[in-house]
Write a protein that binds this DNA or RNA. Sequence first.
DNA 1: TCATTTCCCGTGATATCCCATTCCATCCCG
DNA 2: CGGGATGGAATGGGATATCACGGGAAATGA
Lengths: 159, 159
Amino acid sequence: MSQFVNTALFLNTHTNRIDGKGRVSFPAPFRTAIDVRKSQGVVLFKSLSDPAIEGMTVERLYQMASALEALPPFAPERASFEISIFGAAQALVYDGEGRCSIPKSLLEQAGIAGEAAFLGRGATFQIWEPGALARRVEAAAKAITTGAVAFPTLPAGVL
Amino acid sequence: MSQFVNTALFLNTHTNRIDGKGRVSFPAPFRTAIDVRKSQGVVLFKSLSDPAIEGMTVERLYQMASALEALPPFAPERASFEISIFGAAQALVYDGEGRCSIPKSLLEQAGIAGEAAFLGRGATFQIWEPGALARRVEAAAKAITTGAVAFPTLPAGVL
DNA sequence: TCATTTCCCGTGATATCCCATTCCATCCCG
DNA sequence: CGGGATGGAATGGGATATCACGGGAAATGA
């Protein structure tokens, strides 16, 4: 837990418009979360599991790098993740009004145009095409209510 | 007592009115419980099990996040919970008068309008439509008196 | 020179702050 | 024991700040 609270916590879903210049407001609560943790910045890369863009602080990216460091230098999974994540990651910068411009290549891969839905996922966030996200949310709720997935037990002695 | 309880305890049921601006008084005893534990704040999200809004301290949310951290970053069950919990979680902030504004989306999902019933559930609380809560309370009482559910034994050595 | 990006200001909608009033349970005093 | 006093809590309404977002001007780069 203590290692988790040192990273920004992204919550809620925020859907914002992309204007003619390709600008979109990066959600104010996300900016606050980043500021509070004095993060050095945020990176984006194509999601490996969803039709969406993956986002996280560079501190979080370091944590993932550390996990990969535990693998042998030439392990196949290490190479694959290094290439797919670090090789594709780009810094996200936003101006004084909190607006950023997301690279067109990432938008296309996620099928985003006109509106972008920012989905908080705790230590990370994702950027979705709003319709696709709605369907994904529905599927997640269904998986939980039908018992297809179970929440891991909480650590003992939480009270 | 204090050596056992590290988290805020939410007790009792408080029904308050929602005004035209969508504001509602967050029950004073709940605020006290939060202050006493010097909690960093409270978050709300749609309940996964009831027609209600779930509420807990961010510390408690961190505990849930920790449990998810135990899973690989791209595990499917992890995704479902991250989306359903973090993706829907909103920080609850209240002003100097102790009032908060609950997002319309959450109110609609719980069928709340006009009045909101805050139900203390120990480490967490829920916000219900008063009528729905009354029926739920009735059902809970019945399940216990008929023996349909039984209380688990206390941990050894509590005395 | 033209296209693209970055910066800066304006605006409308929404949310937050602040002051005032009402409500209610308890306390105090006769 | 009764009735007013008291203080915390809930509620109402107006003023203010924040945020998303549009558009023009300046800067950058090919």
